[in-house]
């Protein structure tokens, strides 16, 4: 891995000035990205992005389609490793450890940084087995009662327990779209990750299901660091405390959600959130 910047360099980007004060207020961020570039073959999809993710806040990534939100998100738990042409440079740290360092274990990393995808992708297994999947492979439960407990707790946290407790043996794919997405969130929670990345988790859902997920995200805040990619300004405004605006692979602006939406520093941000392009 090529490091373009040393780990502890101060944030150079002027628009991120306000964050430095946050650092003082909240100690170290959970994840810290500095000078991250992502390439697909020769094509640069992400160019020099610096971002901090805190457990206390939900961070939203917004930006027009194709600007690299998903690409960057996938860099945060090395899901880009599964794409042969993808290459990441710069540093991304989790609790101060470089996740692209050779000592970092991908399996462990992904257990610590979970991910929820745009389209709900429950495994073709029972609801129970979907949730139990992570704990089982990671050996987090010593006994069946242990596992039962994890499953119930995860489903409860995901707000799905009441709806499915009588049919845990049914296939996960038999649930409605919104339930499936909450199932996927429950599945991610089940291994007790430190950060959860969500890539447009509501784009395949109706407003009621969306509202439920948003509620859920709010409840999970503080326990897990949450990053959510969304195309909906309203959603970003509703669920996040920090917002990052991407454009053509660049991080244009990153700051308090309220600032970004009411008083953006950049003209491009202003144009995007008022719907002038995107």
């Amino acid at each position: 891995m090529v490091m373009s910047e040393t780990t502890d360099s101060p944030i150079a980007n002027p628009v991120n000035k306000s964050l430095e004060n946050e650092n003082i207020a909240h100690g170290e961020p959970k994840m810290r990205a500095r000078g991250v570039d992502v390439y697909y073959g020769d094509k640069k999809a992400i160019d020099g992005v610096d971002i901090d993710v805190y457990t206390e806040y939900v961070t939203a990534f917004i930006g027009p389609s194709g600007c690299g939100k998903s690409t960057f998100l996938r860099a945060l738990n090395r899901m880009n490793d599964t794409i042969p042409s993808a290459r990441v440079t710069g540093t991304i740290e989790l609790d101060g450890e470089d996740i692209y360092a050779s000592g970092m274990d991908v399996v462990q990393l992904r257990a610590r940084v979970g991910m929820v995808f745009q389209k709900p992708n429950p495994f073709p297994k029972s609801i129970y087995d979907n949730i139990a999947y992570g704990p089982k492979i990671h050996g987090l439960a010593e006994s069946k009662p242990d596992l039962d407990e994890i499953v119930e707790k995860s489903l409860r946290r995901a707000g799905l327990w009441e709806e499915v407790k009588d049919r845990l043996a049914d296939s996960g794919t038999a649930l409605s779209g919104g339930q499936q997405q909450r199932l996927c969130i429950a599945r991610a929670i089940a291994v007790d990750p430190e950060v959860i990345l969500m890539d447009e988790p509501c784009s395949a859902l109706d407003p009621i299901a969306t509202a439920k997920i948003e509620e859920l995200i709010d409840e999970l805040r503080g326990r897990y660091g949450i990053v959510i990619v969304t195309h909906s300004m309203q959603q970003a405004a509703r669920v996040s405390q920090r917002t990052a605006f991407f454009h053509l692979g660049h991080l244009v602006e990153y700051g308090h959600t309220s600032d970004i939406f009411t008083n953006p520093a950049e003209q491009r941000t202003q144009d995007y959130i008022t719907g002038r392009y995107g």
Binding site: N121, G134, H138
Partner: peptide, 21 residues
């Protein structure tokens, strides 16, 4: 679908766990 595989890998499953399970 690739999404199924991604889902498993993103949970921290190894390749063979993903394949087998």
């Amino acid at each position: 679908p690739q999404a199924m595989k991604d889902g498993s890998l993103a949970m921290g499953a190894t390749q063979n766990e993903t394949i087998k399970r």
